[in-house]
């Protein structure tokens, strides 16, 4: 069982390392991730939201509904913990 798990892990790791060969170099300024939409956010965030910290501007201004949904996730997790850990009253 443990040998089977080890073989699965090694095969998956080799496939993933083969996939990194086509990735852009680490810290490359011309990688596709930093060329497509992020320059617009960096250049327009200050004049549109008046917030110097761009991460906070995107989190609370551009994506505030996403943050609201995240709060709903935390609420659901808390309710689920209470429902699982509740000791049921024993009826006699």
């Amino acid at each position: 069982m443990r040998i089977l798990a080890l073989i699965t892990v090694i095969i998956t790791g080799i496939i993933l390392i083969y996939g990194t060969v086509d990735m852009p170099d680490w810290g490359d300024p011309n990688s596709p991730a930093s060329k497509h939409v992020s320059p617009e956010y960096i250049e327009e965030a200050l004049e549109k939201t008046a917030t110097p910290n761009i991460v906070t501007a995107v989190l609370a201004d551009y994506r505030s509904y996403d943050t609201l949904g995240e709060t709903a996730v935390i609420f659901t997790a808390g309710i689920a913990c209470i429902l699982i850990l509740r000791r049921r009253r024993q009826r006699k």
Binding site: S38, Y41, I42, V58, I74
Partner: peptide
């Protein structure tokens, strides 16, 4: 403001959400 002078902020935002979901 030059975009090349600041690192990309979008993955940071998405990963902030992911950390909170991880703890839930």
């Amino acid at each position: 403001i030059e975009a090349a002078a600041y690192i990309n902020p979008l993955p940071h935002v998405l990963m902030l959400t992911a950390i909170v979901v991880m703890v839930s």
